[in-house]
C-alpha cells in the first residue's frame, strides 16, 4: 500500500502554499458551517464551493474521482431509503408514494457530507502527513496523540505489507479456498503472526529512537510562518462561512 495522499502533497498550488495551521483551522470551521446548514440550496452552494476549492489543489482528477465515488457507494444506499420512510409532503408516482420532505432531507444530508468530505480531502491531499501532525501539535493537540499518530502512520505500511506478503504466501500454497470457514482460520493466524512480529519490531524501533534522544515530541525542519497570503485566505474563508450561514438563516426565516 502506498500513501496515496502523499503523492500530491509536494506540488505547489494556492492550497499547498497555505500555512498548514491556518489551513486546518479555516477549513475545519468551514466544515463545521457546511454540516450545520439547513437549506438544500445553500448546502448545494457549500458543496460546490468545497469541491471547487479541492479543484484548486492541482490534484489528479482520477484519484479525486475514485475517492469521491468510493464515498458515494457508502452514502447513497442509506439516503435512497429516506424518500420512502418520511410521510410529510407525499407525491404520487404511479403505485409508489415518495415523500417530498424525505427527498429534501436526503439531498441535504448528501450535500453536507459531500462538502465535508471535499474539505477534508483538500487538507489531507495538500499537506504532507508530518507537516499536518506538526501543525496539529502547534495547535495544542496533546503530545501523546501526536506521537501515537506518527508511530501508527509509520507502522501502518509495514503491517499492511506484512499482511499482504503472508496472504500471497497462503494463496500460492493453495489456501485460497472460497469457503469462509476455511479462509478465516489461516487469515486469523496471518493476522496473529503479523501482530506478534510488528509488536516485537516496533518495540525495537522505539528503543532505538529513544536511544537517539526521541522523547515523544515531534521535531521537523518545517518552520511555520504566517504570511499575508495566509491571512487573506483565512479571511476569505471566514467571509464564505458568514455568507453561507447568513444565506441559510435568511432563507429559513
Amino acid at each position: 500500500m502506498r500513501a496515496e495522499v502523499e503523492l500530491f502533497a509536494h506540488r505547489t498550488s494556492l492550497l499547498h502554499r497555505w500555512d498548514a495551521r491556518w489551513k486546518i483551522v479555516s477549513l475545519a470551521a468551514l466544515t463545521g458551517a457546511c454540516v450545520s446548514l439547513q437549506q438544500v440550496s445553500v448546502a448545494a452552494l457549500g458543496a460546490v464551493l468545497a469541491v471547487g476549492l479541492l479543484m484548486f489543489g492541482r490534484l489528479s482528477a482520477r484519484v479525486l474521482m475514485t475517492r469521491l465515488a468510493a464515498a458515494q457507494v457508502l452514502l447513497l444506499p442509506c439516503l435512497l431509503v429516506l424518500p420512502f420512510t418520511f410521510r410529510a409532503d407525499p407525491w404520487q408516482l404511479g403505485p409508489v408514494t415518495i415523500s417530498g420532505e424525505g427527498f429534501r432531507v436526503a439531498a441535504l444530508l448528501y450535500l453536507r457530507a459531500l462538502a465535508a468530505l471535499a474539505l477534508a480531502m483538500a487538507v489531507v491531499y495538500s499537506t504532507p502527513m508530518v507537516t499536518l501532525l506538526r501543525a496539529l501539535q502547534t495547535l495544542r493537540l496533546p503530545r501523546l496523540l501526536v506521537e501515537i499518530s506518527l508511530l501508527t502512520y509509520r507502522y501502518l505500511f509495514s503491517l499492511w505489507w506484512e499482511l499482504t506478503r503472508m496472504r500471497w504466501a497462503l494463496a500460492t500454497r493453495g489456501f485460497g479456498s472460497p469457503a469462509a470457514q476455511a479462509r478465516i482460520r489461516p487469515l486469523a493466524s496471518v493476522i496473529g503472526v503479523s501482530l506478534v512480529r510488528s509488536v516485537e519490531r516496533t518495540e525495537r524501533i522505539h528503543q532505538a529512537m529513544r536511544c537517539r534522544g526521541f522523547a515523544g515530541r515531534l521535531h521537523t525542519l518545517q518552520r511555520f510562518a504566517t504570511r499575508p497570503a495566509d491571512w487573506i485566505k483565512a479571511c476569505a474563508c471566514a467571509v464564505v462561512i458568514v455568507g453561507l450561514l447568513w444565506l441559510d438563516r435568511g432563507r429559513g426565516s
Binding site: 506521537e147 508511530l151 501508527t152 501502518l156 503491517l159 499492511w160 509488536v199 516496533t202 522505539h206
Partner: peptide
C-alpha cells in the same frame, strides 16, 4: 512511555482491519 509502541501497532491493526473485506 514503553506502552506507546504497542498502542501504535494495534492502532495500525485497527486501521488495516477496515481494508480486509469478506464476502457475506
Amino acid at each position: 512511555e514503553e506502552e506507546t509502541p504497542r498502542v501504535a501497532v494495534f492502532t495500525a491493526a485497527f486501521f488495516c482491519a477496515s481494508l480486509l473485506h469478506f464476502k457475506v
